[in-house]
Simulated assay, not measured.
Amino acid sequence: MINKKLISIFSVFFLVTMMAVVMATNGSYKLNTYRYYIYVWNMFLAWIPFVFSLIVHNRYYKGKGIINSILIFICMGIWLLFYPNAPYIITDFIHISVSNYPFKIEDTLEFQRNFRIWYDFILIAFCALIGYLLGVASLYLNQIIVKDKFNNLISWIFVIIVSFLSGYGIYLGRFVRFNSWDIISNPMKLFGYIINSFKLEAIYFTLMFGMVLLFTYILVYNLIIFKNNPK
């Protein structure tokens, strides 16, 4: 039997995702463009680690045996591979600066006069928030398992490692234009680049984004703890 709380969380995420899809569809219809659907696609990619974290969580507490353990290991590997896609949507704000608006943005007052810019901004922010929280939820579910399997210290080392690996994964996706599928479709090119990509730009971005992901996760984690024990 699946945990009722997980069903509730899944339902809420699905609802808000559908709201974002409606916004993207409306924007695409009004402007006769498909560019808004890139945010929908990125949300779909953010759902992948969340779904696999649910599978891992369910199998860990409900399943038994060697086959079940192997399945958990494989699913956690897939989760880690796709996890950077969840916070990656934050970088979609760059699309505002390169959008071909039918007007020229000459000063900041333009943002007060053109609803289309605000529509783009709100849609990207909404999708980024959904993607980020999908990632947080999936990381939290896996941290619980690591903590149960080992201890609290190991679980936080796990969170730190995942945060900085995700920062580097986002760098590969945004700057080099690799994606999670490349580890299957083009592994040699991907690994070759990783080996030769340790330069200051990659290090700075990885540390910056990794720190942001880590400390915002700690913030959300403590809010969860406070909710469970507000006294």
Rank of each mutant, 00 (worst) to 15 (best):
I161Q: 03
A125L: 12
Y204M: 11
D92N: 08
R113C: 02
I90R: 07
K227R: 13
K231I: 04
M208N: 08
N179T: 09
M76P: 01
L80I: 14
T17C: 12
T25L: 12
V220R: 02
F10S: 15
I195W: 15
L15T: 15
N152I: 06
P230V: 01
F52K: 07
S97V: 13
V136A: 00
F175M: 03
L139K: 02
V159N: 06
I224P: 06
C127H: 07
W79S: 04
M208P: 00
N114G: 00
F52Y: 14
S155M: 06
W181P: 02
V162W: 01
V162T: 12
S185H: 10
I194E: 06
L123G: 02
G63V: 03
G192R: 09
F215M: 04
T216C: 05
V40R: 04
W79F: 14
F158Q: 08
M1I: 14
C127M: 11
S155H: 03
A86L: 14
F205N: 02
Y221V: 00
F158S: 07
G131F: 14
K64I: 05
I194H: 03
F164S: 02
M23G: 08
F215R: 05
A46V: 04
I203W: 12
A202V: 10
K199C: 04
T33F: 04
T206D: 08
L6C: 12
A20T: 08
N42E: 02
F103G: 00
F178W: 11
I66S: 10
L172S: 03
T33M: 03
T206V: 10
M18H: 13
S53R: 05
E110S: 04
V98P: 00
T25N: 08
I90D: 02
Y34W: 12
